[in-house]
Amino acid sequence: MDIVVGVADLKVSNRPEHVLVTHALGSCIGVAIYDPLARVGGMLHFMLPESSLDLSRAQENPYMFADTGVPRLFRECYSLGAQKQRLRVKVAGGSQLFGRPEHFQVGRRNYNVLIHGEDVGGNKARTLCLEIATGKTWVRTTDNQIYEL
């Protein structure tokens, strides 16, 4: 069953029938984490890198920003039994427009606040999926290419 993670949203699950899905990432980033032993996974869809942009909005909805959303993502998974050293982290999104690299940088800045990523940048729109039963993570682009991360 697909569990949809909206824009500026977080979902975690330990139910093997669940697939967490976030649709159409532009410059936003989807982060999927998974503990294969506990079979616990979570997905965050954040919009912007830093909560300093608007602290009161960040308090209302911490999932809007990377710096407030990512720690929540980990905490929520720990509360379902995931352990830090076993967690695998996968990231998709952070697309950019064409053009000179010093402008319209939201996608790149979103990516740079995270440590590493596997399918970020470029100019494609992506949907990110995480299967809770297996931890399989894949990306579907809007031109219908599908690949595993």
């Binding site: 824009v7 649709h23 159409a24 990432l25 532009g26 410059s27 936003c28 919009m47 999104g93 697309s95 950019q96 427009l97 064409f98 053009g99 000179r100 010093e102 402008h103 319209f104 939201v106 996608g107 100019n123 494609k124 729109a125 682009t141 809007t142 031109d143 219908n144």
Partner: peptide
């Protein structure tokens, strides 16, 4: 850039400073 309801071509357009 916001994403959602993106076309099949994604973000393949110019951004002009």
């Amino acid at each position: 850039m916001f994403g959602q309801n993106l076309g099949r071509e994604g973000l393949a357009y110019d951004g002009y400073p």
